[in-house]
Design a protein around this nucleic acid. Structure first.
Lengths: 359, 359
DNA sequence: CCGCTAGTGTGCAACGTTGTAGAACCGCCG
DNA sequence: CGGCGGTTCTACAACGTTGCACACTAGCGG
């Protein structure tokens, strides 16, 4: 049936191990031998059987990326970046969709598919600090996001508070006084919603603006639909606003839709800024200002840390916490550029790397 | 190190083979034995070693989905649907991004990662009918799209010509006479661009409207950016239009952006319809009318056909060609609904299944 | 009480690869 | 010319699982 090393060896008149050596780039092989083997490989169309190799080497060459849903553009773009980064390093990515359900997120950490890959890059959305125990695993793990801190794993996160504060201050600097927030999670103390809300409140304080509960719009899932609903509710309630900070771009695009439906001009009457800087932001009408949290760098760093950890083979190196630089990207929806103009970076929040020795 | 069946067997006081039987649901096992084994598995935290199982069974439980890029929302949503469908059936999906390059698409069909999975769902964008030979492979393959026909593989495609014609006729039925096309590929004879353009021309003919080369806008890659550029070119050239049919939604959103930048009202001055019905379409401003080619059904059917083929184990069953129903989805950008209203289905093009005996 | 079937469990031999250890050869130094 | 270091190649034994064939028991019909 399938061609094996055995067949190649026979054809080339060498031992099976020599074929293996050629395939794996072992240096001490006479050029002539190597050529014979390579010719045999070509003629027979031989391909290494990965299952056998994986069994023998206890490595699969695969890593898992677990995200809530690919339908969410932020995660689709993140997945794209992670796959590309892994590919460059010769690794293959397997994507798990958790739908942000506790059950599926737990599955990912220790379920039946866990063993298929050599490591995990995990962006949890349902599990939180109370589940820290679940994150104490003995395989290489990189955690993304801001729901879980202190786990014995490398961590790549973003500048949530500082960037949200900067976004809020940017709106204030445009002279806006009634700045609404869309996407809050009431009572939540961890996660992006809480952190970005904190940044928003800090921004208001620094700008000397009062807090007003009416300006805070809840939205459980950060989808376009929920953004539109939250915005609609606020408008229907007659809340007076002149700016909106949406906690992600999907919410912002939904909110934009609702504003449009209410006949409100953006940025004329209401300025709008999102968070994530997804591709869409550049092409919405009007083009959406946003916060670029450094997505490519996050993907890149996550893969790099994971592969390093996989290579290190269980040595208890200190865990790292990496935060990329983030940027405030000004476009039409905040009036930073005219229609048709390219975006302007109107602010940068520096990131950094912390080293945490394991507890 | 890792727990193996051997450890479990020892602990449960049974043979290794009995553990295997329990794990695999072999029926002839005494309940008491089964419980003992399961208890041992739980206590030791045993997980099947997939590499070993894969080697032995010559199956991996993985399938590959090859798409151009996950950053393109259509493919992200397709991937989401494929992963979900596969997951329901107990299978895992590995995503390959080809960036629509010939080299990478060829890699996917026979490259080093090919062996990792039991089958392939492939949406080619660079390879075409001249490469038919490459598609003659001896592993289970389902081809998506409309670039390659006649390969010895199952095929899931869409109603391109009929749906494009219906979209064009819909614009005509709104009284539009100068209907532009965005996304044409000049000289191309296969692929979505050619087919949808054919549908467009048929639609014009049936509506009694003249063809006008000035109304046809080229756009190589179907991205938002190229859609915006093509639209801008046409507007800057002073071409008079009252409607636009964009060959996909990304183009349409880009075009919408350009129309907005030129101060043109949609749908007041120009009606706009896209193709794909991606999630974005629902939340753009104004909400974008589109053609729903039956994406979920495509994903579902593709997985179903592939798994059937994998299960059939090389028997030469006739190849099938499946076309889902497609729908014209009317939203604000064609004035079919008012802002804030839900979409209306304004047309359906029935699909079907053809059986093709292998050549 | 023999033979048969259904139920329950086991031992052996792969699956295709790579790590380890070492054999065989070469040239060359002392 | 003995021995040594570098080069080239090979034999063997795993890696952890499952397919196959078979052993044994109990119950039951003839």
């Amino acid at each position: 049936m399938a061609v094996t090393m055995h067949d190649v060896a026979q054809r080339a008149g060498v031992s099976i191990k020599t074929v293996s050596n050629v395939v794996n780039g072992y240096p001490y092989i006479r050029a002539a031998t190597k050529e014979r083997v390579e010719a045999a490989i070509d003629e027979l169309g031989y391909r290494v059987n990965m299952s056998a190799r994986n069994l023998r080497t206890r490595r699969t060459g695969l890593i898992t990326l677990a995200v809530p849903e690919l339908s969410l553009p932020y995660f689709a773009e993140l997945a794209d970046a992670v796959i590309s980064a892994a590919d460059t390093a010769g690794w293959t990515v397997l994507i798990e969709q958790t739908s942000a359900s506790r059950e599926r997120e737990t599955e990912v950490l220790s379920g039946r598919r866990r063993h298929l890959t050599d490591g995990l890059i995990f962006s949890p959305l349902a599990l939180g600090p109370d589940d820290l125990g679940l994150f104490t695993v003995e395989y290489p793990l990189v955690i993304l996001g801001e729901r879980v801190f202190g786990a014995p794993a490398d961590h790549v996160t973003m500048n949530n508070v500082a960037a949200a504060k900067a976004a809020t201050l940017h709106l204030a600097s445009l002279g806006r006084r009634r700045i609404a927030l869309i996407g809050a999670h009431e009572g939540e103390r961890v996660g992006s919603a809480a952190l970005r809300t904190t940044g928003y409140l800090e921004g208001l304080a620094e700008a000397g603006l009062p807090q007003d509960p009416a300006l805070i719009g809840e939205a459980g899932l950060w989808h376009r639909s929920t953004g539109a609903e939250a915005m609609t509710r606020m408008l229907d309630d007659g809340v007076e606003i002149d700016a909106v900070f949406a906690l992600n771009d999907a919410l912002a695009l939904g909110a934009l839709h609702a504003l449009h439906a209410h006949g409100i001009d953006v940025p004329g009457q209401v300025a709008l800024i999102g968070f994530d800087d997804i591709d869409d932001a550049r092409y919405s009408v009007p083009a959406l200002s946003s916060v670029d949290p450094g997505r490519d760098q996050i993907a890149h760093t996550a893969v790099e840390l994971l592969l390093e950890r996989i290579g290190a083979d269980g040595d208890p190196a200190p865990y790292r916490m990496v935060v990329p630089d983030s940027r405030i990207v000004g476009r039409e929806s905040t009036g930073d550029v005219a229609p048709g103009e390219a975006a302007r970076i109107v602010g940068v929040q520096p990131g950094g790397t912390d080293v945490v020795t394991p507890a």
